[in-house]
Design a protein around this nucleic acid. Structure first.
Lengths: 159, 159
DNA sequence: AGAATTAGTGGGTCTGAACCCACTATAGGA
DNA sequence: TCCTATAGTGGGTTCAGACCCACTAATTCT
């Protein structure tokens, strides 16, 4: 059979879908997430690990309880993430002397170094994804996205 | 206990993450996808169903083979999607007389009507998600997203 | 002190998405 | 005609993400 040219013509997606910003958002978001997740996976990390490190670096030591509320993931799952990070030496856990039920989590130097690397990786991915846009356009996009994000009613989780 | 105000203060997310467009894209995309998927689920449909209908409506009857290439999903999975849509009366399957291995799929009137409804739903979701932006800003966003999307090297699937 | 609440942990389960293989039917080339 | 390739289908597996429950330890309220 040879009813077709040797090289497949670029298959176009339905305009009905491409017209929807929400579709593009979903698709591009998935691509961005996937690529970053791949990078992290090379180090045996997941997106949540980065989120936790970022939260600790940005806001200082916190109880797991606070991380749970801030990041919106299941307490049980957070415990596992923190456990891994602690074993790897990226965070330290200590009983809060004021309320000894709580475990205060803090980043270590290694954790900060790791986060810096991960952030760099994330920006590489971002450069790939946003390649078609120039610097000015990327800033516009960033500010629009930031406003959209603030408007989201915080439902469910997502690293 | 009462070391905290009765109403939880809005937990902020780490700036380290919010600075990343790719993070925002991922998060917003997931929200958009999730909300739309919820709407579709109310009718027992999934995102792929809509994608298939849109493809058929936009490009006319196609063999499953073409849908597979265009939408980038597994042939086996597409067969299941088409099966469901056919049972529900939204599409029709017919052996291609020219090449009887192929099954030509086409939308029915009911399928077009459904797609119109789904599209409307999608726009409702979009209004929710993009609420913070005015019309002009939404257009800017749409065009930026469209360009970013075109630049994506089509990897893996996603409805 | 006793009861009720909260923080953290350790086990799971459930679901959807992506993927893969084996098989049939049809088609095209040697 | 025989052989290889393609289209579609059916029946799975695998994996991650979200979620849930039971339990311990510590705290606070009465």
């Amino acid at each position: 059979m040879a009813s077709e040219t040797p090289i497949d013509p670029p298959p176009e997606l339905p305009p009905t879908l491409l017209d929807l910003s929400s579709y593009l958002l979903s698709r591009i978001g998935k691509a961005a997430r996937g690529r970053l997740a791949d990078r992290l996976a090379e180090r045996g990390l997941r997106l949540w690990d980065m989120a936790v490190l970022a939260s600790l670096a940005d806001f200082g030591p916190q109880a797991q309880r606070d991380l749970v509320r801030r990041l919106g993931l299941d307490p049980s799952d957070l415990a596992k993430v923190v456990e891994q990070l602690a074993v790897a030496g990226y965070v330290e856990r200590a009983r809060d002397p004021a309320d000894r039920r709580r475990v205060s989590v803090s980043v270590t130097g290694a954790g900060r170094a790791l986060l810096a690397e991960l952030d760099a990786q994330a920006r590489v991915v971002q450069d790939e994804v946003l390649a078609p846009l120039d610097v000015g356009e990327r800033e516009v996009l960033q500010s629009l996205l930031l406003r959209v994000h603030r408007g989201l009613g915080e439902r469910r989780s997502g690293p």
